[in-house]
């Protein structure tokens, strides 16, 4: 299986990369980890005249806390999340997510930025970042802009990124103490996209009530879904079984899945409910609520 011909560019600086994107416009695609893009090109389901590889651009791979944010460089590999002590100790939801993306070999190449910028509702980080209330940093020759994650996914395989923009960083507000999160995915086997999956991030208040709840749903519609109604419902409530059951029901209501080999609409919707309940329960446990 062989891709159609293209030109490959390997800029050494961000400026060069942006100049190439500006020059080729729609004819160019950014090559990050390449684990979604290259299979698409090999299947000849996607075409590009120019690939701009940001793999040699320095300064795009990091995981650090700074200015009240967890900052993840756009070209940070998934494996780096798995190995990061910071992520392991403080961001269980991101560790959960990294561990179920594709398979370990793919995660050695695949990048967090690529997982978001591909705009695939089946990818796992979008839900996680929705739950965390992240922001995406897009850089172009005109400078940087920050896009709230809930404004980032505009349609199936499309995002708010402009052709001359590169996703250079993801910023996650550092959760308050008594926060916890989980990502629970139903997959047919390792390497599969989710039949359904839920990311839940919860912050508890002094009395154990929910101060903030973030819920993101994977592969539940044409774009990654933020279950706003469920989030709002939980606000201020004790996260007991009754509340979680109702939140899960509301989350499932927000889904608009399509039938495919992974399951029927009904099954996927119900799984969104079941997994949301499980993710919330785990998140609350992490947050110290149970």
């Amino acid at each position: 299986m062989i891709p159609a011909a293209f030109d490959y560019h390997a800029p050494n600086t961000l400026a060069e990369a942006m100049a190439l994107l500006a020059r080729y416009g729609e004819a160019a695609k950014v090559l990050s980890g390449g684990q979604s893009l290259l299979p698409l090109l090999k299947l000849r389901l996607g075409y590009a005249d120019h690939l701009v590889d940001i793999g040699r651009v320095p300064g795009l791979e990091y995981i650090k806390e700074e200015d009240g944010y967890l900052k993840i460089g756009g070209a940070t590999r998934e494996v780096a999340l798995e190995r990061s002590d910071l992520i392991r100790s403080k961001y269980p939801i991101l560790l959960d997510t990294a561990l179920v993306i594709a398979d370990p070999l793919v995660r050695n190449r695949a990048t967090v930025g690529g997982n978001l910028a591909h705009g695939d509702p089946g990818n796992d980080h979008p839900a996680t970042m929705l739950a965390l209330g992240a922001e995406v940093v897009a850089t172009s020759p005109k400078g940087e802009r920050t896009i709230p994650i809930e404004k980032f996914f505009t349609g199936l395989f499309t995002t708010a990124l402009k052709p001359d923009e590169i996703l250079t960083a993801i910023k996650v507000p550092i959760p308050a103490s008594r926060s916890g999160g989980a990502y629970v995915k139903l997959e047919r086997k390792v390497g599969d996209l989710a039949t359904a999956a839920t990311a839940a991030q919860v912050t508890l208040g002094k009395n154990g009530e929910v101060e903030r709840a973030g819920i993101g749903l994977t592969n539940a519609g044409p774009t990654p879904i933020k279950a706003t109604q469920a989030e709002n419902y939980l606000q201020g409530k004790k996260p007991d079984d009754t509340a979680i059951t109702e939140a899960a029901r509301l989350a499932a209501q927000a889904t608009a899945p399509t039938v495919d080999r992974r399951g029927s609409v009904e099954y996927k919707r119900e799984m969104a409910r079941v997994l949301t309940a499980r993710a919330l329960t785990q998140a609350v446990q992490w947050a110290g609520g149970h």
């Binding site: 090559l31 684990q35 290259l38 090999k42 690939l51 590889d53 594709a102 793919v106 050695n108």
Partner: peptide, 23 residues
């Protein structure tokens, strides 16, 4: 050919990767 089987696994700078999905 679709990044699933790993028969093409080699180490690139020490990390195992699927060489059918790298240029």
């Amino acid at each position: 050919d679709t990044t699933h089987c790993g028969a093409c696994t080699v180490l690139l700078d020490g990390e195992p990767i699927k060489s059918c999905t790298v240029l």
